[in-house]
Design a protein around this nucleic acid. Structure first.
Lengths: 216, 216, 216, 216
DNA sequence: GATGAATGAGTATTCATTCAT
DNA sequence: GATGAATGAATACTCATTCAT
């Protein structure tokens, strides 16, 4: 079973540019509401109002309330991914890896609300829509795997396949953690958080210390 | 603002033993339902039915639906905490630290459903009840901090305060991660997961390598 | 595929006597509303109000609005049938046949509203419920067929099978006609209507004239 | 209160030929939809689509959804009436009467869908539009009355006024019956149905037997 | 004349909570 | 203490109708 990259959300409006525009408004409004009260406690009328149009218009661009959630999740992932594209995936040095991490953390930091929402509400997606979102998450962890793999290929790191996979997961989760555990991380700002986590993440990998020393 | 350890959930029934018993049934039923459909999609009628009594009786032991969620979260934390009490907090060796981690991961593994539920639904608690739950989480991360601190005191590890705190957070989150990212961790069993994570967590801390070497 | 005699309409209330009672109220209220505005223009809230209870309570006794329609149709047929049971099916004389017709017309006359409603709204039943209602209609036309057949068996009438069937249908429809074409039949009262129709229905059947003459 | 023959349905379009054309499309589309799902379950959007133009255009030719129903009913009656004009109203023989009936039944048979729709949905017309439709029905039953009256005048039949009226009603209803009770009449084709019904309708009227004998 | 996006009143249905028995 | 019938506020979604382009 192949999975298309997008799940179409049906709209009874034809004009593609209009759809784009209205959905932009919708997503913006919905994120702010979902953040405050969560998906279930937010009503479709509130979404419509926050989006700047009527309930009838809202339903011209979606089919069900869940579609809004899907659009929100979809959009957030897309944006995160686009922003991550600046990352130099072909570095192969520990420096480029830690720059990648820092970059990712920065993106999460600047999209805290969105990440938090997606993180907490994605599970409310139906069995139908969930795979599309998970697929995007997979792509993101893959990026970190690639980054790490490059370092291994270049001999900068020594790690087994299993460890690479897990390290990538850890990086990804620690990024999200910055959004969903803010209450426990108040003592750090994003730079401190990034530094500390990078240390903890990489200090242990064989070769890191050498690299640091060299840099000194 | 001091926070009592328990938030009383009012019951119109007096018999404490009865309350205990009914709530046990209730929590068991609720966890299974929340796991399947989430808190919001579960109705009080379903909870009553799954608990083996009537909707009227359910409301003899709680005041609102949210009370059920609170009781569930509360219970799960208590259980995790109780189970963690076997942990030797006074070790002060890297070995006792990694034993602690392994122990915690094992507990999470054996309570996957519960941890998952609490993890995903705790955010639905009202501003009123949330602090009580967060407090318990705090206590748990404190345990890891203590464990790490002991190692530092014993000279087994060299870490600053900030790093200790963050490492404890990471350990805690990586435990939960075993429950909430199972879909991405299918390639490991709990032992492999524990080994790999412990390596990644500790390999980097100064002193670990030495300890491993010593052990060889 | 056999058809049970009743399609169960689910109720979340257990007490059978209560169900009976509430549905009585409901049907009474619904018939009067459906008569005024038709099924589609009647809201469930109006039904609840006319039944003397709240919208919530209404839904304790049915699952969907269509259930109300089904209950109404079902009840009306049952009542008509019960009332027709006084008919002497074993007569076998033209007199008993015309008495049967008169009896049926009288029943229709006394249940005009109900018959009209059922007549006009039954088509709104889902493909699921319709067969149950049609089955009851079939039973009623069968009664007339039996009545006629008896006369044929006794030599009072000479008719082929096809004609018997059609005559029964005509009697049945002419009964309903009294309800659904009142606007065109204002010039008759029920007795006149009955007399005229009986004449038209039976004058033609071989043997009728003889019978009438005998009676003179 | 005199009743004009047509109730004007307002249109914001001026070109009469265009109006005619568009309404043709509209009626054709609507009949097919009403037949499938009934008037209330059909949306104006569906009607527009089935008619081959946009919702906006639909509303250029009507004022309300009910107008569509009125146009449909109106059109069907007109068509039935036009087709009945071939009927020789001036016959005055039983033969011409039964030919009239056969002709009418044939028309109903060829317009089954339309007759069924009108039959089931006309009641949804507002108090405002209904009289116009009933008036047309009246005209049709009048035709049968005329037909019968002629026979009486010619001495072919002996009937009182009341009976004539009722017989005309019966003929009319039995024609419709062929459309709305098809499910119960599957055993006949239209010719058999016509023959049987004509027999039942006329056998009884004084003079019929003689006529039949004469014809032998 | 034609289009289709926008509107919002209206509707069926759900569900937490209460309370008489 | 236990039950479950009653309640009605709340909510997702629809659809006839309008009107700017």
């Amino acid at each position: 079973m192949r999975l298309e990259n997008k799940r179409e959300v049906q709209s009874s409006v034809k004009d593609e540019r209009l759809i784009e525009m209205r959905r932009d408004q919708m997503i913006k409004g919905a994120v702010s509401l979902f953040k405050q009260k969560g998906f279930h406690r937010t009503t479709t009328r509130e979404i419509a109002k926050a989006s700047g149009f009527s309930i009838g218009t809202l339903y011209e661009y979606i089919r069900t309330k869940e579609d809004v959630l899907y659009l929100v999740c979809d959009r957030i992932y897309d944006e995160v991914r686009v922003r991550l594209h600046d990352m130099e995936l072909d570095g192969g040095t520990l420096q480029s890896l830690s720059r990648g991490i820092a970059h990712y953390f920065k993106v999460v930091d600047s999209m805290q609300d969105e990440v938090l929402v997606m993180y907490q509400e994605a599970k409310s997606l139906s069995k139908d829509a969930l795979p599309y979102v998970l697929k995007k998450e997979l792509e993101m962890t893959k990026m970190f795997e690639t980054l790490i793999q490059k370092c291994v290929d270049e001999g900068e790191l020594v790690m087994e396949q299993d460890e690479i996979h897990l390290l990538a997961q850890n990086i990804f989760v620690q990024g999200q953690m910055w959004a969903f555990r803010r209450w426990a991380l108040r003592k750090y700002n994003i730079d401190q958080y990034t530094d500390r986590q990078t240390e903890l993440l990489l200090k242990g990998v064989r070769g890191y210390q050498a690299a640091v020393n060299k840099g000194e």
